[in-house]
């Protein structure tokens, strides 16, 4: 009787230990920098945000990044309003998200710079697209830095560009992401 009880307590304590372990392997970043860049022969348009957030579940190699679309700041505030209202429709789709699995398998305790690809789903303007996005992960002690540069085609996410401004807005928008993640306490 007594020994069964003891065994159960040990297993339960082990489970508790697992909780601690699982949480120690999650990393979060709350103020990653994201920029978008549209380039045509007529006009270059840039916007930036420092309010992107990211989560890394290390033991599953899972990375998720999200951007509140309204946090993107344009030089021209009226252009920012048009971007939100007419193109990205941020009242309807307030977030742009990417969630994927990192390859190759990394040893998260080992410092270094690793080129990686993340295979997953990119959601912009409410439309999911399967994407494999290349980037770089830098591990330094407890801090993990991620950076990437990729392209998003307006057409893939059903963002319509009217013929009137066709010359000013690129069909493919260049996106960059850069920031650090810390262990979740």
């Amino acid at each position: 009787m007594n020994s069964t009880r003891n065994k159960l307590v040990w297993v339960a304590l082990l489970c508790l230990g697992l909780i601690g372990k699982a949480e120690a392997q999650n990393y979060v970043g709350k103020s990653l920098k994201m920029t978008i860049f549209s380039s045509t022969p007529v006009e270059d348009i840039k916007a930036a945000s420092t309010s992107a957030s990211a989560v890394l579940v290390a033991d599953k190699q899972e990375l998720a990044v999200q951007l509140p679309v309204k946090s993107l700041e344009f030089d021209k505030k009226l252009m920012q309003q048009h971007f939100n209202e007419n193109y990205i429709e941020s009242d309807k789709y307030p977030m742009a998200k990417f969630k994927g699995t990192i390859t190759p398998q990394l040893d998260w305790s080992k410092d270094g710079e690793y080129p990686v690809t993340v295979k997953g789903v990119l959601n912009v303007h409410g439309i999911d697209q399967n994407r494999t996005i290349a980037g770089k992960i830098t591990i330094k002690g407890n801090t993990i830095s991620i950076s990437s540069s990729f392209e998003v085609a307006c057409k893939d996410h059903q963002i319509k560009i009217p013929r009137l401004v066709f010359a000013k807005i690129a069909e493919v928008i260049k996106v960059t992401l850069q920031g650090t993640l810390e262990p979740l306490k």
């Binding site: 999650n26 709350k30 990211a54 599953k60 999200q66 509140p68 946090s71 307030p94 977030m95 969630k99």
Partner: peptide
């Protein structure tokens, strides 16, 4: 999952 954690960081 990463997604569940991310929803806690919702800064919209």
């Amino acid at each position: 999952t990463a997604e569940a954690l991310l929803s806690q960081l919702d800064s919209t």
